[in-house]
Design a protein around this nucleic acid. Sequence first.
DNA 1: CTCCAGGGATGAT
DNA 2: ATCATCCATGGA
Length: 304
Amino acid sequence: MKSIAAPDFDLEKTLDSGQVFHWQKIGPAFYGTIGDLPVSVTQSGTRLQFTGAGSNLDGLKPSRLRRPDEMELAKIVARYFALDHPLGEICAAFPKDEAMAAARQFCAGLRLIRQPKWECLATFICSSMKQVAHIRQMSQALRERFGARHEIDGHVVYSFPSAERIAASSEKELRACALGYRAKNLLATARSVANGSANLEAWSDLPDDVLRAELCALPGVGPKVANCVMLFAYERLRAFPIDVWIERVLRQRYFPRKRKVTAQQLRAFCESYFGEQGGYAQQYLFHHARRGGGAGPRAAHKGR
DNA sequence: CTCCAGGGATGAT
DNA sequence: ATCATCCATGGA
């Protein structure tokens, strides 16, 4: 098993922070895929151990891509987990307030993963009005039904299916994966990607506003999902997705006892207040609120 | 059982 | 621009 240095990194927090939804923890190791590669990853101290060999045993067509050697796999793992992000500098640039300080302490080592674009887009189309546990179920169902099967260290994992594969499915099949009303949107967007009218890779060079507009033109993609895809798959580190958790944090911690705060005011505040590192700040506030306790839906009703 | 979830599309003020 | 309603599903 190969290993690489991973200082200032927390694998479990990173994989449990609602960015990705397909990693399974079995014992100390996480099993999943990076793109089409089956991988197992284990953190021990400041090092990351991983294995990535593995074979396609399901009888489907084997991948035409040759398996990367250990050196190449190390680069793939380091890039995926963004070990090159200057986390110290990023956190030092956070605004100085109590909410950020608490989130920063709770989320030490949490990094923003560099996700494959289609996989990220598709899973966040599925995310609307769903808890993280549900998103995990939908992701797993799509992978098991339409993705490529792999084995890694004796454990079965599945790649996320391509846009072409989803486009070739039917709304009924997607609903069978418990997507509900999201099935129609995922299918329509998959078709746009598959037929080339939405070229996700080519959009990498677009400025933020244009990229956001392109994403929002896709069925099932609005401002929130677009910002998630920009942040998690396009390296737009100032993108600031506002979901119900973040909105709650903003109203409670940054606009206490102020009755009318419009969505537009919240957006303007986040843009100016969190600025360049807004994406990281947002992810830290989100993960702290969701997993750190004290900021749940019922927090206001619970005795203090 | 009820409540709510990493929302978006549509239509009415 | 802001607001209301509907859209499916299942964990807590």
